[in-house]
Design a protein around this nucleic acid. Sequence first.
DNA 1: CACTTTCGTGACGCCTTCGTGACGCCGTCC
DNA 2: GGACGGCGTCACGAAGGCGTCACGAAAGTG
Lengths: 229, 229
Amino acid sequence: MSKRILIVEDEPAIRDMVAFALGRAGLEAVHAADVRAAQDVIMARVPDLILLDWMLPGMSGLEYARRLRRDEMTREVPIIMLTARGEENDRVSGLEAGVDDYVVKPFSARELLARIKAVMRRVQGETDAGTVELGGLRIDGPAHRVFANGQPVAMGPTEYRLLHFFMSHPERVYSRAQLLDQVWGGNVYVEERTVDVHIRRLRRTLEPFQLDDLVQTVRGAGYRFSTTP
Amino acid sequence: MSKRILIVEDEPAIRDMVAFALGRAGLEAVHAADVRAAQDVIMARVPDLILLDWMLPGMSGLEYARRLRRDEMTREVPIIMLTARGEENDRVSGLEAGVDDYVVKPFSARELLARIKAVMRRVQGETDAGTVELGGLRIDGPAHRVFANGQPVAMGPTEYRLLHFFMSHPERVYSRAQLLDQVWGGNVYVEERTVDVHIRRLRRTLEPFQLDDLVQTVRGAGYRFSTTP
DNA sequence: CACTTTCGTGACGCCTTCGTGACGCCGTCC
DNA sequence: GGACGGCGTCACGAAGGCGTCACGAAAGTG
């Protein structure tokens, strides 16, 4: 199954050039002219990477990028924005909104491919299906439900996102700042210690199932989800 | 220990602007006017990120980037290049040479900081590196864990950093001053004998596994990590 | 064999980091 | 509009590390 790239771009010239370049590189290009069409494509199959034009009919690309980042399905799909030259402030907003990289028009096919390659290599190994099962815990992504030893568990939205992130990236330490980035989403302004509190709440809901030691503290570094104490 | 950024740039105007911006953001800026000076800085302590001017006296920045990528010490330090506008082909060569990102002059301090932040976060999450295995010891960098003969070992943060540094640079003697630079970070004022104490603590945690003689004393010179007594 | 230098080691007090309960705010649901 | 649940922040306390010191052992030095 080859990598599928979604191009959200309304200018036919660029779209065709990109599609041609991707095709030659052995990547599958899917094209959408606006946000509505893009959503249809995503519903059919979540792409491996999204090329997003800065200006879209009806909605700015930046706004759409934020929306993609909020959506559970597309949260971890890398996004490369295609921008016109200039507008540094907005480029910053994009990076802060979670966009992975930029390519400035006019760009060469060669540059675009290099960027795509770099971004995909960067996120490799972090691919994520909706449902995860690990160490007595199971998360059913589509159903948005958690089971501990087969028993359904109730928890708040933030706890859920935190647990989901941890289970998608086990055996790895994340600092409070990283968790704020990944779980709370790009640039919310929240105290770092807030993470501690939610770790506590997550542990408390897992306590009745003796699963609270899956969430481990690494002093001076952050937290880790691991099945081996 | 704050993050240390090395700026390799010969134009004083840009250098000062960058240093000022970094300082305000709580990052430590170290500056070098040419490649030779940069190497000196790196020898003192490997920086957390390198800002590299495209044109340098004596050597092109791209060439230097390649050299940094070949060197064991700096292989995994992210590099951001500062380039003049234009020359897309070369930008591609840079990405292929392992440069992590570009900032095009003239750039705003805000954009630079956003890029730096993005790159550091990216590298932090991605790196499989930091994983070392040597002489019965294994350090899992991402998981922030140490195994001795397969058994997990608990230790404090400083012990961990010390061991990690030693295992990344085995068979080589480091003076107490060098260890303070590399492990504690440049500008901390601590007694040199403090190193002794942490060496002692590291040995003690390795003792139960008969691995404590990996850390060797070189009288009058410093300490060494070696698999051959 | 004295004498000096260097290193190992245990103990101690301070400071940072983390866990935890409580509180107030805000949105949602009856 | 009242109740409720979830979230972010704070304050306090406990625990764990860390840096320093002092003393003794070991290794050079002459």
